[in-house]
Simulated assay, not measured.
Amino acid sequence: MSRVSSQVVRRVFETAANRLDDPQKKAVSDYLAHSGTTADKHYRMKSLESIVMAAGLLKKLQKQKKSSAGPSGQEALGEGTSPQSVESSSHGDHCALPQPSLRQLVIDLERIPEGNNKVKFHKEFKSLLEKHPVTLSGQIPKMRHRRDTSEANQRKLYTHWAEKQLEMRVKHTREQFNRRRPTKERVDTWVKKQGWKCKAANISTEVVENWAPSGSEDRIMDNKQIQTLVKTQDWKGLHITQFEEKGDGIITTRTFKKGEVVCDYHGPVVSGKEGENIHKNTTGKETGYIFFFRNSKGQSLCIDAHSDRCHCHPDKRTFGRLLNHSKKNSNIKPLHCVVDKDGEMKDVILFIATKDLPVGEEVLFDYGVNKKYFNNEGSDLDWL
């Protein structure tokens, strides 16, 4: 069933009321315009007789509108009703109209004011925000301030303001973990550091349960969490394992969402020419650990990861260099990023999941080479 606004309902009934005489039209118009505000200002519906008469007219018009359309496409007047009877009833005695039940009358009377009350509260809340805007660290407006805005709705203003602040805090928190799914404990810790006077669990539960990667890929390295992981190489959710035919590889130990950062390709960045020299002086087994790319200026560069351990993490085997190749079954893609490190722009290669990765799946990417590369030396490379 489609929803319609109270304004549309008014127009429909006012159009249908054109067939009535002038006193009846005025009664319907006053009834439709009735609200708590107008009643206080103008006392339009003073008489109970006027209320009952107007409700009866609307009920009768409603029945006529529900009648089925005849073959000519015009509205039927309803079973057993002739044009003459409608004409006579519309100009006849008001008391001759069928009277609605008390319950239906109450429903009819409350239906339109309810919509007006929502509009009124919206205006009150907007007025409150002008003096007490919702902020991440702000305090809920005091009772005296809420009562100055609306004596009747001060409690509702309290609840609504608090809900808006919670929404703002959840959104802000989610932005801190926009490319790596956090644990509830991690979010709790982050929220508590903000000094917000609230239950961290309310925010962390919402963030973790409804988490999904967000934000532009161009801004991924703005994320402090990703910067820390690139620096520490403490990527979670991955495990080094042995494959019978291809040796070392990486599998997932948790699920990853499409668009999530899985890990990076770690190693010193050198020029493309230097990378080619390293390639020529390394064995075929080590060749696959050199990652060639071009930066945003079009310069040819290379990440040299042919050594089993890097000088900055001598106690770790980094994940990126152990990722295996697959053109058909790749499930991650490399993304070149730049990060400002102490005033120096550094190049980073991140790996982004191209689909949801379940637990226990091997992480693969397309190296972008074939057996004709490296002056046909690729024909001797087993990983191709």
Rank of each mutant, 00 (worst) to 15 (best):
V4Y: 13
S5E: 01
S5C: 09
V9C: 04
F13Y: 05
L20P: 05
D21N: 15
Q24V: 01
K25C: 11
A27R: 08
V28T: 02
V28C: 05
S29Q: 02
L32P: 12
A33F: 04
G36C: 13
T38C: 01
A54C: 11
L58A: 07
K59E: 10
K60T: 03
K66H: 11
K66A: 09
S67E: 10
S68F: 15
A69W: 15
G70P: 01
P71V: 06
S72D: 08
S72Q: 07
G73N: 15
E75V: 12
A76T: 12
G80W: 03
V86F: 08
S88W: 11
H91T: 09
G92P: 14
G92N: 15
H94A: 13
L97K: 01
Q99T: 14
R103Y: 09
L105P: 10
I107P: 11
L109E: 03
I112V: 13
P113W: 06
K118V: 04
H122G: 08
P133L: 09
P133G: 11
S137Y: 11
G138L: 12
I140Y: 03
P141S: 14
M143S: 07
H145F: 10
R146A: 05
K156R: 06
K156E: 04
A162K: 08
K164W: 04
E167C: 05
E167M: 04
V170Q: 00
V170Y: 00
E175M: 02
N178C: 11
R180Q: 00
K184T: 03
R186I: 00
V191K: 00
K192E: 14
K193Q: 07
W196F: 15
W196R: 01
K197F: 15
C198I: 07
K199A: 01
A200W: 03
T205P: 03
A212N: 06
P213W: 00
G215M: 12
E217K: 15
D218G: 02
R219A: 08
R219I: 05
D222S: 08
D222R: 04
N223E: 13
Q225I: 06
K231V: 04
K236R: 10
T241D: 05
Q242G: 07
E244P: 12
G249F: 06
G259I: 02
C263L: 05
D264E: 09
H266N: 07
E276Q: 12
T282C: 14
G284N: 02
G284L: 12
E286C: 15
T287A: 13
T287K: 13
G288H: 01
G288I: 08
I290K: 00
I290H: 01
F292P: 14
R294N: 12
R294I: 13
S300D: 13
S300N: 07
L301E: 10
H313F: 13
T318K: 00
F319R: 02
F319Q: 01
F319A: 06
R321Q: 11
H325I: 05
K328R: 14
N329M: 14
I332H: 00
K333N: 09
P334S: 02
H336G: 04
K341H: 13
G343H: 03
M345H: 03
M345K: 01
F351Q: 05
K355M: 06
E362F: 12
V363K: 00
V363I: 15
V363W: 06
N370Q: 07
K371S: 15
F374K: 03
F374P: 00
S379W: 10
D382L: 12
